[in-house]
Computed example of a mutant assay.
Amino acid sequence: MEFHKTPGWLDWYADPSKPKFRVPDGAVDAHCHVFGPGSQFPYAEERKYTPCDASRRQLDALRDHLGFARNVIVQATCHGADNRALVDALVHSGGKARGIATVKRGISDAELEALHEAGVRGVRFNFIKRLVDFTPKDELIEIAGRIARLGWHVVIYFESVDLPDLWDFFTALPTTVVVDHMGRPDVTRPVDGPEFELFIKFMRDNPTVWSKVSCPERLSVKGPPALNGEQNAYRDVVPFARRIVETFPDRVLWGTDWPHPNLKDHMPDDGLLVDFIPQIATTAELQRKLLVDNPMRLYWPDEVGTTNAKTMENQA
């Protein structure tokens, strides 16, 4: 089957720079995707966009180029609840990848077990109206209850203006909850203003809520240096991400979001995205929590003791 990319949307950055910032050993890119290839893993009929192909081999090459040891692959809306491309990437990762799937109410226990065996450790609930159709909340609660028994968590994607309406639903979920991209704050507003303060309160009042401090390329108004003439990339996002990292250092994750679907204005250089990290996690301790300790605790908990022992041995 032949697919044609949605007009106006950009391909991923083909020649990313080598980051100046060296990520700590064992670092995890905790938010990225695979798309197709469409000829092997067709895109969903109900999709709201058609991306360019972005295969597991290309993702693996980027991971190694940027210096990461592992990654967490998140099912994209263009594949709907058909997780075959995701599972294929996990199975061929040699244990270096975990996955976040999309599932529907009718999924069987055996199918959930098969996803778990492949490396899936969570499901994603998407509330971005331009990307997905509304799924009834009672169906989502039912799914959350079933995946809780496997020790999985729920990843939620929403926009900050919708948090008041979604608060009660999110806090009723029986699992750890991971928020994509800080709930997409409006970075033109004050970092200590009422909208972002509500998100901080959401995390403070609910100790099972984590946040990914990712996607400055989606949140920034100023954009990267090539567009804004500044030395530091996506500078207007830094205060928001840094505040979350410093306030909740044990509940933050970071990811590239490769291959950056749905972007029209510019396609980010993934090397510059890595160089964004020390601006928001300003010490070696915070960087290790963000990139190693937290994702390992969430996605590879059975290896945490072994990994820490190896790190201490290397430092000796």
Rank of each mutant, 00 (worst) to 15 (best):
G8T: 04
L10R: 01
L10M: 03
W12H: 14
A14N: 06
P16A: 09
K18A: 12
P19Q: 01
P19I: 02
F21V: 14
R22T: 15
P24E: 03
P24L: 12
G26S: 10
A27I: 03
A30F: 07
C32G: 03
H33D: 00
F35V: 04
F35Q: 06
G36R: 05
P37S: 00
G38W: 08
S39V: 13
F41K: 04
F41G: 03
Y43F: 12
Y43G: 02
Y43M: 03
E45D: 13
R47C: 07
K48H: 09
K48M: 06
K48I: 03
Y49L: 00
T50K: 07
C52K: 15
D53C: 10
S55L: 08
S55I: 04
R56E: 09
Q58I: 11
L59G: 03
D60Q: 15
A61I: 13
A61F: 12
R63Y: 07
R63K: 10
D64W: 11
H65T: 05
H65P: 09
L66W: 02
G67W: 02
F68W: 02
F68I: 04
I73Y: 05
V74K: 01
Q75H: 08
T77C: 10
T77K: 08
T77D: 11
T77E: 12
C78V: 11
C78Y: 08
A81Q: 09
A81K: 12
A81L: 10
N83M: 05
R84W: 02
L86G: 10
L86R: 11
A89Q: 01
A89V: 09
L90E: 02
V91M: 09
H92V: 11
H92N: 11
G94S: 10
G95C: 12
G95Y: 09
G95E: 06
K96D: 05
A97G: 06
R98K: 14
G99D: 07
G99N: 09
I100V: 14
I100N: 01
A101H: 07
T102E: 07
K104L: 11
G106E: 13
I107N: 15
I107T: 11
A110M: 15
A110I: 13
E111R: 11
L112I: 08
L112E: 05
E113K: 14
A114I: 13
A114T: 14
H116F: 13
A118S: 13
G119I: 01
V120F: 06
R121L: 02
G122P: 03
G122T: 04
F125I: 02
F125L: 01
N126I: 03
N126W: 02
F127P: 06
I128G: 10
K129M: 04
L131Q: 14
D133C: 13
F134K: 15
T135W: 05
K137Y: 15
K137G: 13
K137C: 10
D138M: 13
E139R: 09
E142R: 13
I143R: 14
I143M: 07
I143K: 08
A144N: 07
G145L: 06
G145E: 01
R146M: 03
I147H: 05
I147W: 01
I147G: 04
R149L: 09
R149H: 10
R149F: 01
R149C: 05
L150H: 13
G151R: 04
